[in-house]
Nucleic acid binder design. Sequence first.
RNA 1: GCUCCCGUAGUUAAAUGGAUAUAACAGCCCCCUCCUAAGGGGCAGUUAUGGGUUCGAUUCCCGUCGGGAGUACCA
Length: 552
Amino acid sequence: MDYRKIISGLINDPLVTADDIQIAAEGHGDYALPCFKYARELRKAPPAIAAEFASRIPDNDIVERAEVAGGYLNFSLKRETMVRETMREYSDFDGLRKANAGKTVCIDYSSINIAKPFHIGHLMSTAIGGSLYRIYKYLGWKAVGINHLGDWGTQFGKLLAAYNEWGDKTKKLTLGDMLSLYVRFTEESEKDPALAERGRTEFLKIERGDAEAVKTYELFKATTLEEVNKVYDRLGIKFDSYNGEAFYNDKMQPIIDELKAKGLTEVSDGALIVRLDDYGMPPCLIERSDGASLYATRDLAAAQYRADNYKFDKCLYVVATQQNLHFRQLFKVLELMGREWAKAMVHVQFGMVSYEGQPLSTRHGHVVFLSDVIENSVEKARRIIQDKNPDLSDKDGVAEKVGVGAVMFFALGTQRIKDVDFNYDKVLSFEGETAPYLQYTHARCESVIAKGGGRPETFEPSALTDDEAYAVVKMLSAFRDTVSEAAEKYEPSIIARYLIDLAQSYNRFYIANRVVTEDKTLTAARLALTAAVSDVLKEGLKLLLTDAPDRM
RNA sequence: GCUCCCGUAGUUAAAUGGAUAUAACAGCCCCCUCCUAAGGGGCAGUUAUGGGUUCGAUUCCCGUCGGGAGUACCA
């Protein structure tokens, strides 16, 4: 039910629209209409206007009473009606899903580099993108998850040279091996120019399709993906495409030709550029003076490929805020090329990740591996379970869910634009506004439901009109709008905030009231409320890449 | 220099232009003979700064200060 629309309809004044109705402040009923802005037009004081509106409201099934408070008109709903309606429809997404059926969203996220460690710098893109992927799917979109691999460039020639020189071919290659080979190559090639030259020639071999070189390059790629996929599996992250830089190698020329044909390019200092002075941006580099393609060229080709193959309605790039200029340039060039779909592209940016106040640096060893973070978090969860609930069955399974949840919430709990300084104290905090708190509340609900004999078939809405229960019902009624808003703003943290508020309201209810009592009617109603909270917590957490165990 | 982003309790964060700015963590104090205390309650403590727009500004606009990022052949 859209209460704003209903209330504005009851007032029935051309000046008052549904958007004017807002959620009332604490202790002022359910909805409120500030009447200040009508004062000029109606030439009356706001309180008088509020009183006038109040007097017009006919008897109805929705609004219990309308009270004037200063310049506000406050509405209290008929709680029983509100409870009945909310409990019937709080999790009904059919309308939304129908409206979104047939829409496609491409989400470029995680986008790791081959042969580089998977560290906490990749956490944000992976978590935000993975969450958005689930949110859009939940709302009925077709989502295409794209891991735009960093799998091309001269560094692979260097790595290949290093591997041929020092690599132990008898052992199974690991990501760690590749990292140390690369570091060693960088160090030794500073002293030995011949080595640097070998790196270049090895890369040429890959480019030209030399069978041996390509085979080793594929080994690097497969090895990286194999290790990284273990982390993705733990996090429940999925991709529909791993087409990365290498994939677009042969797809850039048509774009370059078109840019030239349309007169958008010029040659400057030997490089091919698109001037963007008119838009307050530095030029977009298309080709280096030696003829090689660049980042932007590849991304133009990738965008075209996605438009052609997925026919997206939206195309999201979940990439750090540092690359803001690159994406503004990219979108502008596409627009200048006349691509209608350019305005459907969004850079979903997020803040810098640092570690103990210092920027992350693979070269300086100032990194934290994501798998280590997850392992530490799961380990801490295991200790807490051992301490608090040693008889729990499937301790490892629960520890895994709680540990992973804590890490995901660290990434998804606050607005993505905020910079984050990674520290273990924060990630490993399991109290207060955290995933374990939400999981705990969910487990508490499930435990109560089990004690009460399961989920009731029917219940009496009038038994949930006390303040604590009603506050929970109001939270439940906001679930659908919350998920929609998170999708519209590309902001999973909106769901995280919401779940915290929901859990807090339920925990207050739980402390103030006994659910399972002698009173059958009351018990059924409270169990129904508990079940609803439990379901929303579970569904909501899933959207945040977190599983909620039934016991913990 | 120019462009973009961010400044809210000690700390980390909330708040479609609305009422007394809301939580969590840390601190102090309470609550398990009672459905999971990973919980609940209480105390204390905040909008960088100067203007402007508005009935009303944490929110919008301009300036200042502070922090971060980017700024031609890396991605």
